[in-house]
Amino acid sequence: MPSETPQAEVGPTGCPHRSGPHSAKGSLEKGSPEDKEAKEPLWIRPDAPSRCTWQLGRPASESPHHHTAPAKSPKILPDILKKIGDTPMVRINKIGKKFGLKCELLAKCEFFNAGGSVKDRISLRMIEDAERDGTLKPGDTIIEPTSGNTGIGLALAAAVRGYRCIIVMPEKMSSEKVDVLRALGAEIVRTPTNARFDSPESHVGVAWRLKNEIPNSHILDQYRNASNPLAHYDTTADEILQQCDGKLDMLVASVGTGGTITGIARKLKEKCPGCRIIGVDPEGSILAEPEELNQTEQTTYEVEGIGYDFIPTVLDRTVVDKWFKSNDEEAFTFARMLIAQEGLLCGGSAGSTVAVAVKAAQELQEGQRCVVILPDSVRNYMTKFLSDRWMLQKGFLKEEDLTEKKPWWWHLRVQELGLSAPLTVLPTITCGHTIEILREKGFDQAPVVDEAGVILGMVTLGNMLSSLLAGKVQPSDQVGKVIYKQFKQIRLTDTLGRLSHILEMDHFALVV
């Protein structure tokens, strides 16, 4: 994948999101292997301009796509893939009243899908469409860049269908997702969380590099694949309309690839034109409109599966009536509230959605109805927002919020430890010299600072030695090549209790 991002070429006709291997024109390309080798690009942008032909009021008969309808489940399912879809609609009884809503608040519980998330729908649909058009064949390999849930859905379907599955996901995604993927037989590649989507090191860039190296491999490409919004247009939206008897006044959905909100909203605009569509985008993402909503100094966020630093091709923002931004604290607070007060075992993005819903639905009156999409299960986040310690460490809970008995030293300040200034190293000294210094002084790690004293990161003896043994660096290389740029900081005025929580999850903390 090139470091400079080429513009994806656009073909003359058809839909841009065809499933299957992508040609340089962004659509299915038939021909000899030699032709494909000559024409197939190194990668295709996940934010390529959409060429979708959908228009409100256009006859369904003019759609270029294969459409399906929700099917009634048999008493005995032939395999677990038949437990994807037909998820329950559940009334939220307490939270709406707590925040003064007059309307009825309903939750579409997508964590009841077989793999635990709304992404099971698009995973199965992308595979079925690729099999139907002859792209996927027995023994082929599926590769997908994902925040985890699409990966789980694909790995689940691949396990049943017999495909090899490789999932490329950023490091910030939970260990629970990784464990589930491994249990399903998927191979996992992790990428830096802070890598831009168009960087060769991003999950998108690495996935395309693997595709170019592995024979008979395919990126189904949830960011561009029409099967993504079509899955929701054909099934999720129809289920909502049936469950609500066609009567709903507002739908609120958090947005990642945009397939969920695009597919549902398009069908609702056709069948229930008075329904307002509300999009939820986390602070630090750029999906919301108008652009002024996205202006923030924050560039990272903890909530998973929603928000991006690019506009995915499948996201149709014209069908969203209003956007709201959400933050991590309210997302996790509301997710825990949904679990504790409503018994809905949902993930953090569901918290984002409901946090926005109780604001947006203030305009609705008694007798009206708001539906929220709860995308995934708490299963993926047992060591994250479900953990009091994690919430404390991230600053989303305060010590006084917890009532468990603490040891005698818990409320003492870090400054009472009488710490001395640490050994520091410059980023320009060599790895070999740094190892000598650390061994001589008896230290395992040291902060790396520039000549102005600005902290650049941390270097550890173990990481340097393993990097040297693996051949990633040489003793003569500058130590700046092996620094940890993500590390926890703590102030002298913070409590030892807070430091204790940090050290339970990290090997060190830097006192500043």
Rank of each mutant, 00 (worst) to 15 (best):
S3D: 02
T5L: 02
E9A: 13
E9C: 14
V10T: 09
V10Y: 11
G11L: 07
P12C: 02
T13Y: 04
H17C: 02
H17W: 14
S23P: 12
K30S: 05
S32M: 02
E34W: 07
E34G: 11
E34M: 11
D35P: 09
L42P: 09
W43E: 06
P49W: 10
T53M: 11
Q55A: 06
L56I: 12
G57D: 11
R58F: 02
P59A: 06
S61Y: 11
S61K: 02
S61D: 04
E62R: 02
S63D: 12
S63W: 02
S63Y: 05
S63C: 11
P64G: 02
H65K: 07
H66D: 15
H66A: 06
A69C: 11
P70A: 10
I76S: 08
D79I: 07
L81G: 12
G85Y: 04
T87F: 02
P88S: 10
R91N: 12
K97W: 05
K98C: 06
G100V: 09
L101E: 02
K108W: 02
E110P: 08
F111C: 07
F112D: 02
N113G: 10
G116V: 15
V118H: 15
V118L: 04
D120Y: 15
R121K: 07
R121V: 02
R125T: 04
R125H: 10
E128H: 02
D129W: 07
D129G: 02
R132S: 14
T135S: 02
T135G: 06
L136Y: 07
P138S: 12
P138I: 07
T141L: 12
I142C: 06
I142W: 04
I143C: 02
G148F: 08
G148I: 02
G151F: 06
I152E: 04
A155R: 02
A157V: 08
A158D: 09
A159L: 05
A159T: 13
M169W: 07
M169L: 11
K172Y: 02
K172H: 02
S174K: 02
S174N: 02
S175D: 09
E176F: 02
K177W: 02
K177C: 02
D179F: 02
V180D: 02
R182N: 02
R182G: 11
G185C: 02
G185M: 12
A186Y: 02
R190L: 06
T191Q: 02
N194F: 13
N194V: 02
F197Y: 06
S199F: 07
P200T: 08
P200F: 06
P200A: 08
S202V: 04
V204K: 11
V204R: 02
L210I: 07
L210F: 08
K211I: 09
N212S: 12
N216G: 06
N216R: 06
S217C: 05
H218E: 07
L220I: 02
D221F: 09
Q222R: 04
Y223V: 02
Y223D: 02
R224S: 02
A226N: 12
S227V: 06
H232R: 06
Y233I: 02
T236C: 05
A237E: 15
E239G: 14
I240R: 02
Q243W: 05
G246Y: 07
G246S: 08
L248Y: 02
D249G: 14
V252E: 15
V252I: 15
S254P: 09
T257Y: 02
G258I: 04
G259S: 05
T262A: 12
A265S: 12
E270W: 02
E270I: 06
E270Y: 07
K271G: 06
C272L: 09
P273D: 11
G274A: 15
